[in-house]
Write a protein that binds this DNA or RNA. Structure first.
Lengths: 250, 250
DNA sequence: GAGTGGTCTAGACCACTTG
DNA sequence: AAGTGGTCTAGACCACTCA
């Protein structure tokens, strides 16, 4: 029935096995055909069958064990690909006018009581920015940004009065890992004022920590940001598939 | 210096190239060595170099174009792997006592005004559940669950008075895709009562839609759930790496 | 001990695309 | 037209581990 007969053989094998797993015909713990059996079934070389099975394993749908065989992976994990967009690109992609305003800028050492700043700067200087993003003139997010100047010295000369730090960092600073924390908070007086909402209104807060790993495997903090969105104005959307998360960005 | 000399060759090639990208030595748009050049550099067969480059492409770090070559991918996308755990497993993993209570259960057709229910049931019957999850006796989440009985007929006989529907569905119902929507809301009177918080308090709301794709590529809705967490009691954490998202679930 | 997956080789043909 | 990646073959040796 399918018009996909032109697909590469390794992909057809992959798709056939994936279909049997996703449909429930093969259940967690069930054994898949061995590479040898697939070679016979599809009249192909072992590398071709291997590639299909390896890709299933890479996506977490199956587990491969020497001597034992290939098995459908455990109860499918709940992991999702969450798109956390660059705000400027996101707003423009929706056809709205993007606005940006720098509220404050300081170069200073980390504050004594702030563990996050201490961890980021590790004794060095910090660039501390507060700024506001808007879409079609309506406040979209308040951003509290900290950049470790030891890791990104060029940030000190960058013109963050006219350019949001997120996009600049993304374009110019390599990074190797990051962590998000998403939570709901109530707007305090300052946030309510900046975002034009009632004090106590529910907001979505996204905290992001970004680091770089050097050759020796040591992690160096690059930036730390808290973005707060009015709850009514912003959703985060995540798509996911069984097993290891998979998705396109863009 | 590294003690990783025992790693497979394709992985060493992969790691070397990944390091040059993540360190910033190779910048977006830069060209990587061709497969032929890597063969010469590492004294290996072309398939081995191909595997390293293919894996980089699979993770979104590079883009490969015939005749042109392999290039560092565009400005690294902001996509993260978000772990959205099965609540029971998550609570128990934290060493807390998990509690579950069914608040209401109905088998009925979709409600006239509810587009989400219409889309899920498509004329068929619906199992509508409201329930409450708790950790160490404190309310953790209110769950409003809808299950399409056409897609999961076994749900009608399942004992959701003593067992949360999420885990049962995950274990017994195959699925092929899902979508999350995360937002901040203020607790209404009923939510405040169930969760033991003040009316108007900020809450994290996670809406999840899960579907199954059949052989013909048609999507059939399986379940739709809204989970609401007290903002102060729950965070979602996402980890990510440049390019295509990658992560472990567990 | 036998069968599995993990890796690798040294070729091959093809499609595509770009210089 | 030439060089690139995409795919595939028909072998090979090894490590592991389960029966």
């Amino acid at each position: 029935m399918s018009l996909m007969a032109e697909a590469p053989l390794h992909r057809r094998i992959y798709a056939a096995l994936e279909g049997r797993i996703l449909s429930g015909e093969l259940r967690p713990g069930d054994r898949l055909p061995s590479e040898h059996e697939l070679c016979a079934d599809y009249a192909c070389a072992r590398m071709t069958a291997n590639r299909a099975l390896s890709e299933l394993a890479g996506r977490g749908l199956v587990v491969r064990r020497r001597r034992a065989g290939t098995f459908v992976a455990a109860p499918r994990a709940q992991s999702a690909v969450l798109a956390i967009p660059d705000l400027e690109a996101e707003v423009k992609a929706r056809g709205q006018a993007y606005g940006y305003r720098l509220l404050s800028r300081q170069v200073r050492p980390p504050m004594a009581g702030d563990a996050a700043e201490q961890a980021l700067a590790d004794g060095g200087q910090l660039l501390a920015l507060d700024c506001l993003h808007s879409a079609d003139g309506r406040p979209l997010a308040h951003e509290r940004r900290r950049i470790a100047l030891a890791a990104a010295p060029a940030a000190e000369a960058a013109d963050f009065a006219s350019m949001a730090p997120g996009g600049w960092l993304l374009r110019s600073q390599p990074w190797s890992g990051a962590e998000h924390r998403i939570t709901a908070i109530e707007a305090d007086a300052a946030l309510a004022d900046h975002l034009g909402i009632a004090r106590g209104a529910a907001c979505l807060a996204v905290e992001r920590r970004t680091w770089r790993t050097d050759e020796a495997g040591r992690e160096t903090g690059v930036t730390h940001v808290w973005q707060v969105f009015p709850g009514a104005a912003y959703d985060l959307v995540a798509r996911f598939t069984p097993g290891r998360a998979e998705g396109r960005h863009g």
